[in-house]
């Protein structure tokens, strides 16, 4: 399982390999829905791979495989032993192994998405695993969440605030969320989505697509 017989290693600076995108955020905020949307929207143009980190089952991987948004073989599930956070930040070995297995089997890829298990506001990806990261919040936790900050909210390359369709139901003020997020994030972008109403997540997909293009320009040829 996962044995790599040719065992080539990519340059440590990332030359010659796909962009690795981490998708993190609290439980149930819509990470898997976003990954499915990205596969749907970017799949026709990009060669993709997906790694999921489920806490208890292989539910997310199963969901994505059933959704038919990507060849099921291109979706790998990593089990994280009680600590979803550890697997994306402190001990990334199993995730790197899964990413490289996908690259070896299906490469060259343009983009590998790693979805973290649902965690808390402090969850961020190691730079050794993800080149870019998206943090997904939803409005149902209340409009105070961006104000609370935490490394996910403040430092992610893109903050996505999902389930805007629910805002009226939970009394969340999107203007407040936007203002608070901008206050802690400076120039870093924030996008509001309702993947329920817009399953293509077009704005997020075009941000990701821009990242892939930029990455391929700066990391095209293997160094040395």
């Amino acid at each position: 399982m996962g044995a790599r017989h040719d065992d080539h290693h990519h340059a440590p600076d990332g030359h010659g390999r796909a962009l690795r995108l981490g998708v993190g955020g609290p439980v149930g905020s819509g990470k898997t829905a976003l990954v499915a949307a990205l596969c749907r929207t970017l799949g026709p143009d990009l060669s993709l791979g997906v790694v999921t980190n489920d806490i208890y089952t292989t539910e997310d991987a199963d969901f994505l495989r059933r959704a038919g948004v990507l060849d099921p073989e291109r979706i790998l599930a990593v089990e994280t032993g009680c600590c979803p956070h550890t697997a994306i930040r402190d001990d990334i070995a199993a995730n790197l192994d899964a990413v490289e297995t996908l690259e070896d089997r299906f490469g060259p890829l343009d983009l590998v998405i790693v979805e973290s298990g649902g965690d808390n506001l402090t969850a961020t990806f190691s730079r050794g695993l993800a080149d870019r990261q998206i943090f997904v919040l939803d409005v149902s936790g209340g409009d105070k969440v961006p104000r609370k900050g935490g490394p996910g909210v403040t430092t992610a390359d893109l903050l996505v605030i999902n389930k805007t369709d629910l805002a009226p139901m939970v009394g969340a003020d999107l203007g407040v969320m936007d203002r608070d997020a901008a206050a802690v994030r400076g120039e870093r972008p924030v996008l509001f989505t309702s993947i329920r109403e817009q399953p293509s997540a077009g704005a997020v997909a075009s941000w990701v697509s821009d990242q892939v293009t930029a990455w391929s320009h700066t990391h095209a040829t293997p160094a040395s």
């Binding site: 990593v78 089990e79 994280t80 032993g81 009680c82 600590c83 550890t86 697997a87 402190d90 001990d91 990334i92 070995a93 199993a94 192994d97």
Partner: peptide, 11 residues
């Protein structure tokens, strides 16, 4: 146990 070699996921 902090050696980042995936041991944390095995019981």
């Amino acid at each position: 146990s902090r050696l980042p070699a995936g041991g944390h996921a095995h019981s």
